[in-house]
Simulated assay, not measured.
Amino acid sequence: MKKLLFSIVVLASVMASAELVVHKEGSKVVLADSCSNAQDMIQSLSQWTQNVKAGKGCSNLEPMTKSGSDCRYDISSCVPEHVVKYQDAKPEVDGPNCWNLSLVMSGILPSLRYSSPEEMHFYMRPPLCKALKDGEARQPGDVGAIRTVSRAGVEESHGFIYISEKIAYSKNGFSQMSPYALQTMEEVMQTYDVPNKKECRKNQIDLKSDCRNAVSFYRCDSLDSYMDKHKEIPEKVRTTLKKISSAEDCISKQAFSGKSLSAEARKNISDTSKAILAFAEEAKNSPEFNKLPKEQKNFLLGGIFYRLDAIGDQLSFSGEGSLAWETKGLTEMFGNVASKLVKEGK
Results as ranks from 00 to 15, higher is better:
residue 124 M to T: 00
residue 29 V to Y: 00
residue 213 N to K: 15
residue 151 R to P: 03
residue 330 L to C: 15
residue 292 L to D: 03
residue 108 I to L: 10
residue 283 A to D: 02
residue 179 P to K: 00
residue 120 M to R: 01
residue 298 N to F: 14
residue 267 K to A: 08
residue 171 K to Q: 11
residue 134 D to R: 13
residue 251 I to M: 12
residue 313 D to Q: 15
residue 183 Q to K: 08
residue 307 R to D: 02
residue 118 E to I: 01
residue 98 C to I: 11
residue 89 A to D: 00
residue 268 N to C: 06
residue 4 L to P: 06
residue 140 P to G: 12
residue 312 G to F: 00
residue 208 K to Q: 03
residue 67 S to R: 13
residue 222 S to R: 08
residue 74 D to P: 00
residue 330 L to I: 14
residue 131 A to Y: 03
residue 155 E to N: 11
residue 114 Y to H: 01
residue 298 N to A: 15
residue 327 T to C: 06
residue 274 K to F: 09
residue 298 N to T: 11
residue 169 Y to M: 07
residue 343 K to S: 13
residue 186 E to M: 01
residue 100 N to L: 15
residue 19 E to I: 08
residue 90 K to H: 14
residue 110 P to Q: 02
residue 6 F to N: 14
residue 179 P to M: 00
residue 314 Q to Y: 01
residue 239 T to S: 10
residue 248 E to H: 05
residue 9 V to R: 12
residue 305 F to C: 03
residue 229 K to N: 09
residue 210 D to W: 05
residue 279 F to Q: 06
residue 239 T to N: 01
residue 273 S to G: 04
residue 340 K to N: 09
residue 46 S to R: 08
residue 302 G to P: 01
residue 136 E to S: 06
residue 277 L to D: 04
residue 196 N to D: 01
residue 337 V to M: 05
residue 320 E to M: 11
residue 285 N to F: 13
residue 63 P to Q: 09
residue 96 P to D: 03
residue 39 Q to G: 03
residue 168 A to V: 11
residue 205 I to R: 07
residue 118 E to L: 10
residue 94 D to A: 04
residue 218 Y to A: 12
residue 202 K to P: 00
residue 93 V to L: 10
residue 153 G to T: 11
residue 204 Q to L: 12
residue 198 K to L: 09
residue 90 K to E: 13
residue 253 K to F: 02
residue 32 A to V: 13
residue 229 K to Y: 04
residue 248 E to Q: 15
residue 162 Y to G: 12
residue 21 V to Y: 01
residue 289 F to W: 09
residue 321 G to Y: 15
residue 310 A to K: 05
residue 35 C to I: 09
residue 36 S to I: 10
residue 177 M to A: 09
residue 73 Y to E: 10
residue 113 R to C: 15
residue 312 G to H: 02
residue 266 R to A: 12
residue 262 S to T: 10
residue 256 F to A: 06
residue 158 H to G: 13
residue 94 D to W: 09
residue 97 N to M: 03
residue 170 S to Y: 08
residue 190 Q to H: 13
residue 278 A to K: 04
residue 259 K to H: 07
residue 250 C to A: 13
residue 312 G to Q: 07
residue 233 I to R: 14
residue 92 E to H: 02
residue 149 V to S: 10
residue 330 L to T: 14
residue 310 A to C: 06
residue 2 K to E: 12
residue 18 A to N: 04
residue 250 C to H: 02
residue 52 V to N: 02
residue 315 L to I: 05
residue 214 A to S: 09
residue 225 S to D: 14
residue 188 V to M: 11
residue 12 A to L: 13
residue 14 V to Q: 09
residue 10 V to S: 13
residue 19 E to L: 10
residue 287 P to N: 02
residue 125 R to L: 08
residue 61 L to R: 07
residue 43 Q to K: 04
residue 76 S to L: 02
residue 57 G to M: 10
residue 212 R to I: 13
